[in-house]
């Protein structure tokens, strides 16, 4: 059986589905017998999801949007005047 370290080292490729079948089977076997690594896998996946959900919510604040609009408008007038 592969050890926990090998298993954790391969998590990225495991989730991406890019491991060779044999290696993948070895990880699946490890997960069946190692609850700590299952916990690690689950929380590793949650980490990405949580960060995405939190950071994806960044919206342009109204005042910034307003500034950007004015900036573009002014800039266009300059360009057209050229």
């Amino acid at each position: 059986m592969i050890c926990c370290k090998e298993c954790i080292d391969l998590l990225h490729d495991y989730l991406e589905g890019s491991l060779a079948q044999e290696t993948r089977d070895a990880l699946d076997e490890h997960f069946r017998e190692c609850p700590p690594c299952i916990a690690f896998l689950n929380t590793y996946k949650s980490t990405s999801r949580l960060c995405r959900e939190t950071l994806h919510q960044i919206e342009i604040p109204d005042e910034v949007r307003h500034t950007l609009q004015n900036f573009l408008k002014e800039h266009k007038i300059q360009q057209e005047g050229m």
Binding site: C3, C4, K5, E6, I38, A39, T43
Partner: peptide
């Protein structure tokens, strides 16, 4: 090469 820390899910 085994987990050393206690890992909570």
């Amino acid at each position: 090469g085994f987990q050393q820390e206690k890992i909570r899910d």
